[in-house]
Structure formats: structure tokens, C-alpha cells
Computed example of a mutant assay.
Amino acid sequence: MELINFSFNAVTSEEEVRKIVGTPHEHITKKSVSQIDEHCKRFIEMSPLFFLSTANAEGKCDVSPRGDFPCGIQILNNKQLVIPDRPGNKRIDSILNIISNPHVGLLFLIPGLEEVLRINGRATIIKNPEILDSMSLNERPPLLGIGVDVEECFIHCPRAFKKSKVWDIDSWPTKESFPSSLEIFHSALLHNGVVLK
């Protein structure tokens, strides 16, 4: 299929976007807070899964899923939290992005709940042993931590989860209807010239 030139007839200014989309209600623009209040704290403590969005200095973006036991994230105070960086595949995409660009976005999920918590802020890669030791899992502290200075927190409406029916088991596809992660992994290796033995 021929590539489409997205720049043709593209929307390129906020003014043009507002003419098409309109402006949000005051309740929407003023729903965010600049600190981790009691409701945000409770949401984070109950969330076993969140997504970490980062971008490098060139603006190339990445979103990484992060799973941990509820309360795996340490809330230091109402303006700061620390994410443990558990051992993984050593790509460290998020870590490298944060080193060159500290701006991050977090999206917290609670199973069965259609609302999500969004947090935006600035991150720092930390190696403070006192903090990391307190976040040990199976007696193994994380190698690094991601300290976040929180700038904005707000609950996002449930529309996306309602429409997608993501928590509705009856709407889930069967595992047989899509390739396994191993098949996808092998396909990517072959595409990149890696010969499997």
C-alpha cells in the first residue's frame, strides 16, 4: 500500500483544533491538582499496573507497561513518588529517555475500574540505597528507581473503558485468534535478519 502524506490538509494550530473540537467545560479544565491528594494516593496504592510515557531529547516517544504489587510505588510525600525499576530485559528505554528528557506521564489502572489516574511530572533516575532497599521484592531491591516530582494529577473519565469493554470477559477474543508473543518475537527477529537456530 502506498504511504499517505499526512501533512496534506493537516491541522497545524491550536486555533484550528479549537474551531473543530471546541473548548472544555470549566469543570474539566479545573479538575487537575498539583499534588498527590488522599484520593490519588489511594488510587496509586490500589493499582497493580500503570503505563509510563517518556520521550528522549529528540522527541521520540515510548510507553512502557509497569506491573508490580499494589503499593509497589513509594509515595514519599504529596509532591513526590518513586517507581522501582525491577530487573527486566535491559533495554532500559524509559531510563535512557528520562536521562535526556525528564518529562513523564503516568497512567494508573485498577482492575475492573473504568476510571484511570493520570499523573504528569518530571523524573530523575535515582540510586539512593535507603529508598531502594525499602522497595525490595523477595528481598531484592530494585537496581534503580525513578523519582517523580509531580506536577499534575487527575482522574480521567471512563469513556474509553466503557466503549472498549476491556473488563467485559464476554467481549475478549480467544487466545487462538491471534499469534502468540513468541511467534511475534520470532517474526521480528527474522525481519531484522536474525537467523534462529
Rank of each mutant, 00 (worst) to 15 (best):
L49V: 11
K19C: 04
L113Y: 12
A55W: 11
T54L: 03
M46D: 14
K163H: 12
N101R: 06
S136E: 13
I98W: 04
S136Q: 08
G72P: 04
K79I: 00
I169C: 00
P142S: 08
L81Q: 01
I20C: 05
R122L: 11
I92D: 07
L109K: 00
E176L: 03
L182D: 11
I36M: 03
V166P: 12
P129E: 11
S7L: 14
K41T: 04
E176K: 08
I99L: 10
V17P: 00
I131Q: 11
R42A: 14
Q35R: 15
E183K: 03
P141C: 03
N120R: 09
G105A: 06
H39W: 09
D168W: 02
D149M: 11
E38C: 02
N5R: 02
G59E: 06
M135Y: 05
E183V: 13
L117R: 10
N89A: 03
H191F: 13
K90H: 04
R86H: 13
K19Q: 15
S94W: 01
I28D: 08
S180R: 01
C153I: 08
L113R: 12
C153R: 00
D170A: 14
N89E: 00
V116P: 00
Q74R: 15
L52T: 05
L109V: 10
P141K: 13
A160V: 06
N77H: 02
H39Y: 08
L117F: 08
K165M: 08
R66D: 01
S164M: 02
L137Q: 10
L81R: 02
E176D: 15
T12Q: 06
G112P: 10
W167N: 05
F50N: 10
F161P: 06
I95K: 03
R159F: 14
C71R: 13
L132N: 06
I44F: 00
K60Y: 15
D93C: 07
N138P: 04
G145N: 05
R66K: 15
V33Y: 07
L137D: 03
D149Y: 10
L81C: 02
Q35E: 14
I125V: 14
F6H: 07
I131H: 09
F6A: 01
D149T: 14
D149A: 05
T54G: 07
A57L: 13
P24R: 01
K30T: 12
K197Y: 04
R91A: 13
C71I: 14
N97L: 07
S13F: 01
P24W: 00
E58M: 14
S32C: 03
K163S: 13
I125P: 06
S100M: 01
K19H: 10
K31C: 09
S187Q: 11
